[in-house]
Design a protein around this nucleic acid. Structure first.
Lengths: 167, 167
DNA sequence: CCTATATAGTTTAGATACTATACTTTTTGT
DNA sequence: ACAAAAAGTATAGTATCTAAACTATATAGG
């Protein structure tokens, strides 16, 4: 749902609409457009995660990247989330104020900061995870293993092409 | 590769990572994470579209929604792009300054504004379209019609589930 | 041992993109 | 005729990110 926070039909939606059009005008021409539209809408707004309160998309995103084990460096977070260290500093500051994460010392490097989830943060993590699992279960009910295999392959090819464009 | 385990995704990436993991631990567990990563990067930066110059993602998005035929109401654009009218006012103002679009009068409603692409705007539209087509062609070379059919089905189911969550 | 360079993280200003709200003007329905 | 709806604008605020300059610590080579 996060993918397309900012993913307008800049390229993808239209690309796949083209693909679907040529493949089968009647059935799938607008599938991707609708998908993107729904994805955009779903993740535009903050959400409540259990008793941890309301988190913005980038906040829960960070919580997810920290994980229950925690002890993650700021720079590791930056790499996992694909943003600059400055961006991480900002989101961690907000999460610290909300009591979702805390900063710990690194035993061997005094420059470093090790980020972990508080108990409150872990409830947010769990609430988020539960959403995933529910969604996954519903998806499982409607897709066969064979279909998942194909889906996966398509996604891989797609990603490879995107990566080329991005480089 | 550890970073992929906690990828940046609010929900979707992880959901599908879960799906892929259960389906086949070795092959596809991280496909979706990578896809999302690439998509995010793709949508972050402005790009150059032919001689029309550099456009931000939301700008080319608007150009795409206006289309070569143009004569689109502000409120129609808002609906197509899934944003408020206020947001449209802002992006159209920027595009007008850049000489990409112009405002025309509505013949029967003096409140209304009909947006169309200038010649310059049309070159941006065409450059964008060409990118789609190239992408589509590359995709076609690597996917069979059967695979596209499955892909389409998976996407539809996915969208249906998302729409439920959204409503 | 020193010093140059790399690394960890922060700060700040500015860009982008969106919303919500209040507003003007015009159209429409009863 | 007049209230309500609709088209669009303006503005202030929120969220997110980057780039660049900065501090402080670590490390590697002479």
């Amino acid at each position: 749902m996060d993918w397309l926070n900012h993913l307008p039909l800049f390229s993808l939606g239209c690309i796949l609409n083209d693909m679907m059009n040529k493949h089968d005008m009647n059935h799938g021409s607008h599938s991707i457009g609708r998908l993107i539209f729904q994805l955009q809408r779903l993740e535009r707004n903050p959400r409540t995660f259990g008793e941890a309160g309301t988190l913005t998309p980038s906040e829960i995103h960070a919580v997810d990247a920290i994980g229950e084990d925690g002890n993650v460096l700021m720079s590791q977070l930056a790499e996992r989330l694909g943003v600059t260290k400055g961006a991480i500093t900002q989101v961690i500051r907000r999460l610290e104020k909300k009591g979702i994460v805390f900063r710990g010392e690194h035993p061997e490097d005094s420059r470093a900061v090790l980020i972990s989830l508080t108990d409150r943060g872990k409830t947010a993590y769990q609430a988020h995870l539960k959403l995933h699992q529910q969604f996954y279960q519903q998806l499982q009910e409607q897709l066969s293993p064979h279909e998942i295999t194909i889906f996966e392959k398509c996604i891989k090819i797609f990603t490879g092409l995107l990566a080329e464009k991005n480089e």
